[in-house]
Amino acid sequence: MIMRRKGEEGEVRDGVDAVLDALYTTAPPDFVSRREQLAVAARTAGRAEDARLIHAARRPTLAAWASNLLLRSEPEESRRFLELGQALRAAYQGLDTDAVKELSERRRQIVSALSRQAAQLARTAGHQLSNAAEREVESTLQAVLTDESAASQWGTGRLESALKPPSSLPVAPPLASGTRRKPPGSTRAPVSSRTAAKDESAARRRRQQELARAREAAEAAARHLRELQAARTDADTVLQRARDRHGKARERLSIAEEELKEARERLQRAEEDRQDAETRDAAAADAVAAAELAAREADQEVQRLGSSNA
């Protein structure tokens, strides 16, 4: 039986959360094998419940993975993006047409820029997103801005599939001319015109403050995106230079490999010539030895015959 000290349960929980956070930034092709390794490690360490939670994790689509990667790789930008969504959803209640148009345009620009950034992160990690996957990333970011539930899901960093935004933001309908808006949740009987005017003025100020906060959040997000885009341009330049150097190095390697191949072929031919020369030398040595033996025998025969005649 495994005994845990006071406070250890929370530490273990934090540990499995960190494991799952890291797991969901693992590229989908490697997700299952990595998940099983982590589950086995937890089970071996005696953390059966952690192993179950890890094993229950489902592989994300490429679009969901890229969205998770964006959240984890750019925490400050993601925090601002979530704050922008919160401000936008609040500000869209009771806004005039011009303000809605302005915020919608900024929303499209920011979502487009972040979608490109997510695609770049995926490429850097070795996976090219298809056009359909890029559209799913953009759809997910649109949903994060316009839907509180979607924002909460993305904020976990563990999306399994892309999110879809609602058809439209909940914009409060405009009031008819001369009509005063009743404060939300109010069920009281009609009040005096002065009180109604004060309520309407306060509501107008709140809407203006919400709009101002939304604009500030949008401006901050836009500024940060411009900084990221500039950094990406610099990174692209460095990448292109690295690719050029890599191409030249590969070319030199190809030439060196060809020269090495030719040198090996020359070495092989030289080795064959050496072996042939050694064979011929051995044969010649045998022939010389045989000739020397024959000469000695002939000399001995001459001497024998000379002795007999004497």
Rank of each mutant, 00 (worst) to 15 (best):
220 A>N: 08
4 R>A: 04
51 A>N: 02
173 P>V: 10
139 S>L: 13
27 A>G: 08
39 A>D: 01
180 R>Y: 10
179 T>G: 00
211 L>C: 05
301 E>Y: 04
4 R>P: 00
215 R>V: 09
250 R>T: 08
100 V>H: 00
175 L>P: 01
105 E>I: 02
283 A>D: 12
254 S>I: 06
159 L>T: 00
186 S>Y: 07
220 A>V: 03
122 A>M: 10
114 L>Q: 12
276 D>I: 10
35 R>Y: 00
237 T>C: 07
225 L>R: 08
303 Q>F: 10
34 R>T: 11
35 R>S: 09
109 Q>W: 12
255 I>L: 11
268 Q>D: 12
297 E>Q: 13
46 G>F: 11
189 A>K: 11
163 L>D: 02
207 R>N: 06
101 K>V: 15
273 D>I: 09
236 D>A: 14
216 E>L: 13
34 R>V: 09
299 D>M: 14
260 L>R: 13
77 E>V: 15
38 L>H: 07
125 A>S: 14
64 A>G: 02
50 D>K: 02
81 F>P: 08
255 I>W: 01
72 R>V: 01
26 T>I: 15
248 K>A: 12
163 L>R: 07
270 A>T: 10
252 R>T: 01
5 R>T: 01
150 A>N: 09
121 L>I: 12
42 A>W: 06
59 R>D: 05
282 A>P: 02
69 L>C: 09
256 A>N: 04
273 D>R: 11
309 N>V: 11
98 D>V: 13
79 R>D: 02
63 A>H: 03
61 T>G: 13
257 E>A: 14
237 T>A: 08
56 A>M: 08
135 R>W: 07
265 E>G: 05
80 R>Y: 05
149 S>F: 00
217 A>E: 00
229 Q>P: 04
93 Q>L: 15
285 A>D: 10
150 A>D: 08
55 H>I: 01
310 A>S: 10
232 R>S: 11
120 Q>D: 08
82 L>W: 08
69 L>K: 04
75 P>C: 13
34 R>P: 00
302 V>G: 04
272 E>A: 13
45 A>C: 00
168 S>K: 08
234 D>K: 11
308 S>V: 13
26 T>S: 01
100 V>K: 03
188 R>I: 01
237 T>S: 05
255 I>F: 03
122 A>Q: 07
97 T>L: 13
237 T>M: 07
196 A>F: 02
186 S>L: 03
123 R>N: 09
100 V>D: 06
102 E>A: 15
152 S>G: 01
61 T>N: 03
276 D>L: 15
244 D>W: 06
181 R>D: 01
183 P>Q: 10
66 A>P: 06
67 S>K: 09
78 S>A: 15
